[in-house]
Amino acid sequence: MKNNNAQINKEPKTSSRSLALTALEDFNGFAIYHSGRFVLFAVSFNTVLIVLLIFYFVIQQGLPFFKNFDTIEFFTSKQWYPEADNPKFGALSIIFGSLYVTISALLLAVPAAILAAVFLSEIVSHKIRNYVKPVIELLAAIPSVAYGFFAVLVLAPFLQTHFGLSTGTNALNASLILSIMALPTIISVAEDSITAIGRDLREASYGLGATRFETIFKVVIPAAHSGIIAAIVLGMMRAIGETMVVWMASGNANQIPSPWWDLTQSVRTMTATIAGDMGETSKGSPHYQSLFAIGIVLLAMTFLLNIISEYFLASAGKNSRKK
């Protein structure tokens, strides 16, 4: 015993401290642990609550519309006269308009974005990539109204004078701008997923005599397909939910272009309709409710796209962990 004590005295003081907590220390630890937990829970629950409230509010405001008016007409008719004496609420061309500019924008953006992602991850050196990628991501930080300005003041006159169009604000204009806005999202996520494909797969491909082109297109891109699909869906969400640009650039004509592939005609999107009409309606009126009904459709679409992108991002993560 004596021997032991002598040894302990030589050690730094800490070793003589009790290994058991005092009652006060025990209580303090308990209090800090639980109050900290509560604060963090409250903060994170807030975000969830906000999302749920948005869903609740939009559905609560929009649902009466589907009860009071003809739901089938809403989805199938092109007649949108919300303020007429005998109002008509056919949102087909508006829903079509949103999908139309979104899909056209993606057709322009996806090939360019994937090639850019391949270029950044496979062709240029890491150093250049580390400069270029933040600049591309900066595109996402430009306010959409600035893009809208560009669409109205630069692109519209350009389209009018060089292609002889009657109006420069049309589906083509909106699609072009939307595609530029979707680029940073798609490039960034796709580049991440391509870079995440390990060197081992590339080496396997080169080792079998593949060229760089073959390695990229037969091994790397197929292996990264989950992340690339997620990138495309995220870009699609960006495009379909975009309001300001399409409002300014699409021409806001409530019509389905005829022939359907004629991008130079004006269209009107769901987002632009909501933003444009909301100020002119009185709360609780059929027109007001119809805008929320459009909101429900929009919310359902983005929610669905979100689930799809989560699914593919999750499986992309699983794949890269496996390696």
Binding site: A204, Y206, G209, A210
Partner: peptide
């Protein structure tokens, strides 16, 4: 291309393509 087809390689970690 010809070199690597005539000189095959097996790597440290199994690396089958997905």
């Amino acid at each position: 291309v010809n070199l690597r087809q005539q000189v095959g390689m097996v790597f440290q970690k199994p690396n089958p393509f997905p």
